[in-house]
Design a protein around this nucleic acid. Structure first.
Lengths: 137, 137
DNA sequence: ATCCTACGATGGACGCAATCCAAGTCAAGA
DNA sequence: TCTTGACTTGGATTGCGTCCATCGTAGGAT
């Protein structure tokens, strides 16, 4: 996602220092951060960045398809910068950490039309749950 | 789930009028209600029931495995009384309503061991997303 | 290089879902 | 019927996110 800023500029994005910093945070470690964690890391470089701007920017990145929102439970949403390739998530029920996984098969193909109840089905997410090696001990 | 109250009493549940009403609401239509909707329906029969009690009771039913919590993005959790037969969910991105679906295939079988990263994987949920006939118009 | 202005940033108020808490109530066993 | 500890209550609080009026600025126009 190193050319992310380039792609965004081509789409008419105004490149502000705040947006640059948020994009850099997501471009860093490939982890799944909450909006608040993104804000905290962004604030290390740009101390007065506001939470509203982080939310706005994350929302725009999601709309543009550059980042995927992951709602694991009733807690804060997490933001997954690995949007370029489809993948599913494996969540530790102990500590909440998330790993990207690539299962075989296509869940959409497994839902026959008589099970769609007239919906226009646009996607499917699989969430695997279990204990990570750390928490299993 | 008609013998739910019986099962709960056997497990040492104190049977209060509030708990009875909440259980009856869930036992009615097999829809996926939010906590607030459960509260509203319960209050038709027991006007002064408090939200806190509804939340407490729903939480207990989830812990006892009688009801499943369904977290859709950003919205209020919904409570699924159909906990005894395995199924997946189809969520309308417009209005948030949920339908139970039974896709073919076993998602757990589609996750090879080299994709499990040492986790003890205990389950998988599939959430299909799309627009319901109402919202598609 | 400087000016303009529309788009973006700010931060405090607000809203919703859910939880917490201290005080009052009551189901059910003795 | 009495007693007791589990349950209920509702107002306060927390967590997460959005809204909005105002200020600032990126980047095209001159």
């Amino acid at each position: 996602m190193s050319d992310l800023l380039e792609r965004l500029r081509e789409r008419g994005w105004r490149l502000t220092s705040q947006r640059r910093v948020v994009a850099e945070v997501l471009d860093g470690d490939h982890v799944h951060l909450t909006a608040d964690e993104v804000h905290a890391r962004a604030a290390e470089r740009l101390p007065e960045i506001s939470r509203a701007t982080v939310y706005n920017t994350l929302g725009e990145l999601v709309t543009l398809g550059e980042v995927v929102e992951v709602a694991t439970d009733g807690r804060a949403k997490r933001y997954d910068p690995n949007a370029h390739r489809p993948h599913q998530h494996l969540v530790c029920t102990g500590c909440g950490t998330i790993r990207d996984v690539h299962p075989a098969g296509d869940p959409l193909a497994d839902l026959p039309s008589e099970q769609r109840f007239g919906f226009t089905v646009s996607g499917a997410e699989i969430t695997y749950r279990g204990l990570c090696p750390e928490c299993a001990r």
